[in-house]
Every structure is written in structure tokens, then in C-alpha cells.
Nucleic acid binder design. Structure first.
Length: 777
DNA sequence: ATTCTGAGCCAC
DNA sequence: AAACGTGGCTCAGAAT
């Protein structure tokens, strides 16, 4: 109390007094008083947790102060230093406990006799849980260090170390050779948690795994696509076994990092400890499988879909990822240099113009919106709300040259930073190819996501599904091969036509009219042919716009935003929507029905009830906001609450369409992969939502091109009425294609020396060309 | 020095 | 009054 009062005294007096007080405290303050003082400080919440743990550890006698420091006042810093030691001793205690309490049915397999017994037992099982321990997550470079199995009929859980350090064990070659008949036996089902990883690891060592029966990770996504967001305060991606086990099995789980430290290698873990950890993994996987199949059986449509589509799809993903991509590094280098040169020019010009308006000691950073917004606002005399290129800057580019330059700069730096410069760095050292990751349950609706592996630190992963048109030409077919791209023409609208049974849409598809062009003709009051395609065969501006408008409308866009997008006033947009949707009453009724359903049930179905999308927010009760009070801060929470409901209602229709379309794509991928497996040199190359890309020998035939077309339009049909459509094109570089007709019959291809030879030479010429401009789209 | 978050922007 | 669904990556700036 005295000290506080004195703080208001003159500075030098205050300082002296503080020092004196501190000295006094150091001499007299008890540890309890020190803790009261420290815990009352303004600590961050993780610090506070740690401090309390240290306090408890000290009173329990687990840890004590360093004698050398005992004469000094006990500080927060010292307490936090003690935490490190405490955590370490706790971890060691935990590990010792784990080993001491190893269940009697956990067995380490390190001798030929034990292994022989295990093989005999495995042959008697109809389904087992399997897991691999490895040196890392690069399935093309890392290696297996151990394998665990759970054998349910005899309740036995084993770990077979094959490459641990400093211990007696069987060799990897010996073990994998012995396991081969088991691993490749279709009749012995295998359950994994994240099967794609383990299958790829087995393949890396020459074992082609068969009999995949269940993947507890993908199944969990199907049972609850909201799992991640339901764990409050936890990061996204909580489909790890260690998170699921406590929630659904009531079993404590420790993550690898927690037990062994962040950069630990499993091969360094002593075998007694490795056994408890690894065997527990398969035991938990097995128990989670039983829990999941029990629940999924209650909805047979989902179970049937999971087993017939999602399970076989996992093999397809392993193959597709392993096939990988070839990049034209010379092209990337040259293109990258061009972009850099231009970016530097623009940067110099923009800085010269804006620097006088930049306040701050650091040089102006063009990539920093907080720096750029004020500087640019002053420079052009327009107060900018943000630096959004599309909404804010684009409308100003005609009036202010500096804005146009900035837009070009942003586009170029994004392109080179994210794609043209970045991708060449991601070559796999082992395969020399580029491998993306595809997550078949990466989205809540069922679409694939793509990117890096969750645990990957190598930086080799990349999103294969958002490559811009300018970056795609970097991706090339391997020598003597071509890429064949096949898309689902208007996939989502056909899906809507089927789900809603709207005759106007169905008729348009039956008569082969393009729905976007039809809408464009209506809106712009121009002939259908004129708005369908440009004379060079490219999409017209009008049709592209209608495509955006249609999709946006499907996603629940307001009339206000629609007007904005069309560049018209709101009443016009309202009328337009009325014209379009008013002429399709069945579609309108279907949209309304989706909203009603989700409000009643809290979820919606994808096609054939194969998948649910749970949207519980739709069941919230709307809060009343009195007329004219919208901006009243008192109603902020009510506004947020109601917009959650609005969002849920928009999601209902979208989830049905996106979910059903993703099922069509996945089923088609499985069929396509079956076809590729029969054709030497064929592979599935990529999947981008409504498009499949194949890698095929350049001498593939017209008949085979027709087979691809057939796979696309007949693998998954929207009922008996709505036809599917596809465009198939042949490419040397991704994004630079020609139709199959042109490829097989076009004048530049036909030759006196024979069709095949000429065609190969044609693609070789294209390969050499390297002139791909493809600026903008 | 590393990790997290938001803005922004790429894809369908 | 607000106002478009599903993703992933990069950068800047802040937090730890």
C-alpha cells in the first residue's frame, strides 16, 4: 500500500523507493506470498496454466528451486524455467507408467518363432487392424520402422519392429516378405486410420496391399463432418486417432509429440515403449471401427456408399498421388524471370509515386494493405475502405494509372510467389516428380480438398486444385504421353435439374441447349447463337457472366449482390431473377423445400441419401430486431445470430448440389481408375471437382477416347432422364488443349506418313514450343 | 525464432 | 440491414 502511494512521487524518489521495497521483499517474502504475487500478475493464459502446475509440483515435492537461486526473490521467470523440468519429469514418469502397465495381450515380435506364430494367427482372421510406424511422412522417401496388428478374434495386439536403433529385431525385408500373403490377401480385411498413408508406405516397400475394409479417419468424416469445429479451442484437423479415442471410446490418448517430443524419431523409441504406443494404435483403431460400423449400419444408404465408393477411392488416391506431375522447369524459369522483371519495374514506378504519401520510417511495402491503404488513399484523393483488388481497386483502374499498375503488380507477385516460383521448389527428391495430396473428405460437403499432408514439414505439398490458368502450362505430360482432360459439362446444374425435376432445365439438357447461353439470350435479348460461343470457339463474356450468376444464385446470393455483379440496379436484378426463376416453378419450389427440410431436421441429404450434411444452425430460433433498430449496437448479437441462420439456409441447397456432384465425380474416378488399370501406361493424373485428367500414351486411339467419354457420362447418372455431358480434350501442357476430333482428324495432324507417327511428332513439337502465353482468361 | 491470425486471392 | 457455397496458400503483422 505504501509503495503504491509513493509511485506518484517524483521519478528519482520513486525509483529509489521501488528498489528498496524490492530488496525488502526479497529478504522477507515467503514462497506463498511470492506465488500470490506472481499468479496475480497479468499472465497469458498458457503461462497461468504452467505457473499453477509448477506451484502444485512444488507443493507435491516433485520439483524444487535451484539452490543457487534460492537467495534471490522467487520470480515468474524462475517459475517458468522450472516448468520445463517439471514437464520433462512428468513425461518420463508417464512413459515409465505406460511400460509398467503394458497390457498382457500386447506382444513384441522380434524372433522368427514369434513371427511364424503370428503369421499363422493372422491367417485365421477375417479382418485385422494395421498400422505402420515410419521415419516420416514422405511416402516416397521415408521408410517403415515397424508394423502393428490387432487380431480381434484372439484379442492380440502386436508390434513388429523392423528398423529400430540398437536392438534385436527381424529385418524389414524378412518381415514384409513373410507378411506378403496376408497383406495381398483380399480375403483378410484391413482396417486403418488414414489408409492412404499406410498403403503408400507398403507400396514403397513393394507390397501391394489388398483387402482394405475400413478407414476410421474417412469414416469419421462421413459420420460427423463437423467434428473439427465442435472441439472448442482446438485447432482444425482433429480427426486424429488420439483425439477421437477419448471422445468416442473413453480412452485417454497421448499424441506422439506429447510422449516423445516434437522432433523425435520412432526408430529411437525403446521397444518396450514402442510396443505400448504402436499396439495401442491398432487396438484403438479396431475399437473405433466397431463403434463406427455399429452407427453407420443404422443408415444403410451411407454404409453402402462408404463401402462401395469411398473405400475403393482410397486406392485410387494412392495411385493418383504416386503418379504425380512432371513440371517444365525451363518454362517456369523463363516465365518467372519475365514476371520478376515486370514486377520490379512496376514496383519502382509505384513506390516513386506513392512514397511521398507514405508515413512511417520503413520503406513502403506494396504487399502490406495497412501501409498501402492510407498512402494510396491520399495519393489519389479517394478514401479507400480496403485494398480488395476486385471490389475496391478494379473500378478505379481506368481513372488512376497508379491503381492499374498496382493491380498488375499484385497479380504478378501473387502468380510468381504462389505458383511459378514456388512450385519448382517442391520436386520430390526420390521420385523427381511433384506430388500433391488429395483429401477425399477434406470438405464438409464431400468434395476433395488438396494441399500438403497435415504433418508435412518438407514444404513439398501443394494444392493441385487451385492452379491458375497461367501456372497450368508448367505442368506437362511425360515424354511420349499426353494429358486427356474430361469435364462434366454443367455438372451442378444438371444435378439441380435432376434433384428438382424442373422441366425447363431438363428439356434444355435433353435438347442439347446450353443453359448458360439460354439465360444469356434471355437477359441480353440477343440470339442464342451469338451469346453461346465466340467465333474462335471460346466462351462469350455474356455466357461466362451467366455462369457466375447462376452459381451465385444457387449459393443464395441476394438481389443486391446480383445487381452488383451484373452492373445493373437492384430492381432490374430482381426482375431478371423473377424472369429466370419465375419460369421454373418446380425449381423455386425445390429451393424452398430445401430450406424447410433443413429447418425441420437440421441436416440435408445428398443424392440417394449417400451422405448427410448436418447444419444445426438452421434450427436456431430467429431473434426479433424492431424495425429501424438494425444499427443499434444493442442488437449486434441478434444480427450475428440471425445471419448464422441465413447462412445455414443458403448452405442447405448448396450442400445438396455440391455433395451430390462430388459423389458423381468420386464414382466416376473409381470407374476411370479401373479402366486405367487395364491399360498399360495409363494413369489418373488429377481431379479438379468437375474435371478428371488422365495421363495416357500419345498413341491412344479414338476408341479409347470414346471409352473416356463413356466413363464420364455413364458412371453415375442423374436418374433416367437428365443426360450427362462431357468435353474431352488432349493436351501436351495442362490447359492447352485441342478437342479429340482435332487431335485425331484435324488437318495439322493427318499426314501421308501415317496418323500415329504424325500425331506423336505433333505432340513433340508442342512440347518443344514453350511459347505458352495464356495471359489472363 | 516460431506460431497464429486475418486479409487477400487462386480454384471449382 | 445484410447481401456467395466449398476449399488452401502467402504474406504481413502480432503473439508467444
Amino acid at each position: 500500500m505504501e509503495i503504491r502511494l509513493n509511485l506518484n512521487a517524483a521519478p528519482e524518489t520513486s525509483d529509489r523507493l521501488k528498489k528498496a521495497a524490492a530488496k525488502k521483499t526479497a529478504a522477507t517474502e515467503s514462497l506463498d506470498d511470492a506465488w500470490i504475487r506472481i499468479l496475480a500478475m497479468n499472465n497469458s493464459s498458457p503461462d497461468q496454466t504452467r505457473l499453477i502446475e509448477v506451484k502444485n509440483g512444488m507443493s507435491a515435492g516433485l520439483i524444487g528451486r535451484d539452490p543457487a537461486a534460492a537467495s534471490k526473490r522467487f520470480s515468474k521467470a524462475e517459475a517458468l524455467r522450472l516448468y520445463k523440468g517439471l514437464a520433462e519429469s512428468q513425461r518420463e514418469g508417464k512413459l515409465a507408467d505406460l511400460v509398467k502397465n503394458t497390457p498382457a495381450n500386447y506382444h513384441l515380435i522380434t524372433t522368427e518363432r514369434q513371427f511364424g506364430e503370428l503369421l499363422a494367427e493372422l491367417k485365421n482372421e477375417s479382418i485385422v487392424a494395421v498400422d505402420t510406424e515410419t521415419t516420416g511422412v514422405d511416402v516416397y522417401t521415408d521408410v517403415i520402422v515397424g508394423i502393428s496388428f490387432s487380431l480381434p478374434t484372439i484379442d492380440k495386439h502386436v508390434y513388429i519392429p523392423v528398423a529400430h536403433e540398437n536392438c534385436e529385431q527381424l529385418s524389414r525385408e524378412y518381415v514384409l516378405e513373410g507378411l506378403r500373403p496376408i497383406l495381398t490377401d483380399e480375403g483378410i480385411g484391413k482396417v486403418f486410420h488414414n489408409a492412404v498413408f499406410d498403403i503408400a508406405m507398403f507400396r514403397r516397400h513393394g507390397s501391394d496391399l489388398k483387402g482394405l475394409a475400413w478407414d476410421t479417419q474417412t469414416a469419421m468424416h462421413l459420420l460427423n463432418e463437423n467434428e473439427a469445429e465442435q472441439r472448442e479451442g482446438q485447432p482444425k484437423g482433429n480427426y486424429k486417432l488420439k483425439y477421437l479415442a477419448p471422445k468416442y471410446l473413453g480412452v485417454e490418448g497421448d499424441t506422439f509429440d506429447q510422449l516423445f517430443g516434437k522432433n523425435a524419431q520412432f526408430k529411437e523409441v525403446p521397444l518396450d515403449l514402442a510396443l505400448v504406443y504402436a499396439a495401442k494404435d491398432t487396438e484403438l483403431t479396431w475399437r473405433l471401427y466397431q463403434f463406427q460400423i455399429h452407427h453407420m449400419r443404422k443408415t444403410p444408404t451411407i454404409l453402402e456408399y462408404y463401402q462401395s465408393v469411398e473405400i475403393p477411392l482410397l486406392y485410387v488416391i494412392v495411385d493418383m498421388e504416386a503418379n504425380g506431375y512432371v513440371l517444365d522447369l525451363d518454362f517456369a524459369k523463363e516465365y518467372g524471370e519475365r514476371l520478376h522483371k515486370r514486377a520490379n519495374e512496376l514496383q519502382a514506378e509505384i513506390i516513386k509515386e506513392l512514397a511521398p504519401f507514405h508515413e512511417g520510417s520503413e520503406p513502403l511495402n506494396l504487399n502490406s494493405p495497412p501501409q498501402m491503404r492510407p498512402a494510396l488513399s491520399v495519393a489519389i484523393g479517394v478514401e479507400l475502405a480496403n485494398m480488395d483488388a476486385k471490389k475496391t481497386l478494379k473500378p478505379l483502374e481506368g481513372k488512376y494509372e497508379v491503381v492499374a499498375k498496382l493491380l498488375e503488380y499484385k497479380k504478378i507477385t501473387k502468380l510468381s510467389g504462389t505458383y511459378i516460383d514456388a512450385l519448382p521448389q517442391k520436386q520430390n527428391p526420390t521420385t523427381k516428380r511433384w506430388h500433391s495430396r488429395y483429401n477425399p473428405m477434406g470438405t464438409v460437403t464431400g468434395r476433395f480438398s488438396s494441399g500438403k499432408d497435415e504433418d508435412d514439414t518438407s514444404g513439398q505439398g501443394f494444392n493441385a486444385q487451385n492452379q491458375p490458368g497461367e501456372a497450368r502450362p508448367m505442368f506437362v505430360a511425360p515424354p511420349r504421353k499426353v494429358l486427356v482432360g474430361a469435364d462434366f459439362k454443367a455438372q451442378e446444374i444438371r444435378c439441380v435439374a435432376y434433384l428438382s425435376q424442373e422441366p425447363v432445365l431438363i428439356d434444355a439438357f435433353l435438347e442439347g441447349r446450353d443453359p448458360y447461353a439460354s439465360m444469356a439470350a434471355t437477359f441480353y435479348k440477343r440470339p442464342y447463337e451469338e451469346v453461346y460461343k465466340n467465333s474462335d470457339g471460346s466462351d462469350t463474356k455474356e455466357r461466362k457472366q451467366m455462369k457466375v450468376v447462376w452459381l451465385a444464385t444457387l449459393y443464395g446470393m441476394s438481389d443486391f449482390s446480383l445487381a452488383d455483379m451484373l452492373g445493373v440496379k437492384k430492381p432490374e436484378a430482381t426482375q431478371f431473377k423473377k424472369d429466370i426463376f419465375g419460369s421454373m416453378p418446380k425449381l423455386s419450389a425445390w429451393l424452398a423445400e430445401n430450406e424447410k427440410f433443413v429447418q425441420k431436421h437440421g441436416y440435408v441429404w445428398a443424392d440417394k441419401q449417400a451422405r448427410k450434411r448436418r447444419i444445426p444452425d438452421a434450427q436456431l430460433k430467429r431473434k426479433q430486431i424492431p424495425y429501424g433498430k438494425w444499427n443499434d449496437p444493442k442488437y449486434v448479437e441478434s444480427r450475428k445470430h440471425n445471419s448464422k441462420i441465413n447462412r445455414a439456409l443458403r448452405q442447405a441447397t448448396n450442400a445438396r448440389v455440391q455433395g451430390s456432384s462430388s459423389i458423381q465425380t468420386k464414382v466416376t474416378m473409381v470407374k476411370a481408375a479401373e479402366y486405367c488399370a487395364k491399360k498399360p501406361g495409363w494413369a489418373l493424373w488429377g481431379s479438379i471437382h468437375d474435371e478428371l485428367v488422365f495421363e495416357v500414351p500419345a498413341d491412344f486411339t479414338k476408341e479409347e477416347a470414346n471409352d473416356i467419354r463413356d466413363i464420364m457420362v455413364n458412371s453415375y447418372r442423374w436418374g433416367d432422364v437428365v443426360p450427362n455431358g462431357t468435353d474431352v480434350e488432349v493436351m501436351r501442357r495442362w490447359g492447352e488443349g485441342m478437342s479429340t476430333e482435332e487431335f485425331f482428324d484435324g488437318p495439322s495432324v493427318i499426314s501421308k506418313t501415317g496418323e500415329y507417327e504424325k500425331r506423336v511428332r505433333f505432340v513433340e513439337a508442342n512440347w518443344q514450343r514453350g511459347t505458352i502465353g495464356n495471359e489472363g482468361n
